[in-house]
Simulated scan of single mutants.
Amino acid sequence: MTGMIRPSLCLLALVLAQPLAAQEQSDSACDSGTILALKGLQLLDQRLNAIGQRLVTGNAPYCTDTAAQAGVLLHDIEQYPDQAVARFALGFDGRIAVMAVAPDSPAAAAGLLPGDDLLAIDGQRVEDIPANGPAIAKEPEAYRRIAAVNSQLDRALGQGQTTLDIMRGGERMQLVIDAPPACASRFQITASEDRGASADGKIVSVTSAMAEYFLSDDEFAAVVAHELAHNLLEHRDRLDAQDVNRGFFGQFGKSAGRIRSTEIEADRLSVWLMANAGYDPQAAIRFWTRYGQEHGKGILSASTHYRWKKRVELFEEEMAKMAAMEAVDGKYPPPLLTAE
């Protein structure tokens, strides 16, 4: 998880206007609300982490850009505005801890558990990992340490078996992870009241409001697979090379057409990614039909995206191609990833 929790609704003006007893009662209510919000976000992160891990491992044979994928999601106590409440709600003892472990992942096989505190990677203490460099410097200050730790873990896993020193219930132990390569992408929940999802070339982000809207993991996977498709097809790099305007004027002219072409490709590829990960591609039709009927305006009406009925037609076309194809080792080679 890399998104920050939104500030509590307990406003300073209300605190100043209340007597001490009322302030204490309000503080308690605020803490309880924050705890529930943190626990809720953790559950969403765990779901997304599990879905993302299945998608990247299930489609590993078709990805040219790969990275060792352990199925573990880390977070840093510095990410949270109220660290005392975060420690209580999420089980922090140290600074870096495990937020989520995907089922049947290398991290799960090694015995890693949510709430474990990460102390060292191959003998290097997390506090000694340099939190600098051009890529790290672009991160907000509160995220530089976790970005550095993630980078170090990725490097270690890419070299083979990796030993993690962890603390669990006051007991220090070592666990060994051996993570095979899979499609390269990270996944994160961002705390927001707006429904949305995005991909920046390396990370798939889904807002908490969107994640709470899904009726099943298959629906969740439909949206994550669409955003993952953007990353796998390097759409951001393509659009940057074409000098596409992603702002207001990106809704018009050549920029709109170029963005729309990437959205079409992501829709087409998404159902193949779902099928190879063991998700029901029909869920893409169910989700976008429901979402389109309930929220047909806004982005679904933008010139950069097909309206929901046309998107459903694309899904049906791709699923027909899969139905006419013989699976290879139980997988369906996605044309957009395997075309020469």
Rank of each mutant, 00 (worst) to 15 (best):
E212R: 15
A142W: 11
D267N: 14
V56S: 01
G91F: 01
P281L: 10
L36Y: 03
A222V: 03
L269P: 01
A225E: 09
R144G: 10
Q251T: 15
K202Q: 04
R6E: 03
S105M: 03
P181W: 06
D237H: 10
P281V: 05
P103H: 02
A222H: 03
G94Y: 05
G71Y: 01
T34D: 07
G40P: 08
P333A: 11
T64N: 11
R286T: 09
F220H: 13
G278E: 03
P181N: 14
R311I: 07
D82R: 07
L55T: 08
K321I: 08
G330S: 10
A107N: 07
C183Q: 04
Q152I: 00
D267A: 14
G71V: 04
A102E: 12
E78V: 00
K39D: 04
W288I: 05
L336T: 09
G257H: 09
L228E: 06
E265T: 13
R286M: 08
S270M: 12
M173W: 04
L14P: 00
H230D: 01
W288P: 00
D329A: 07
Q188F: 08
G296F: 11
V271W: 07
T64L: 13
A67S: 14
E78L: 09
A148V: 03
Q23N: 07
T190R: 13
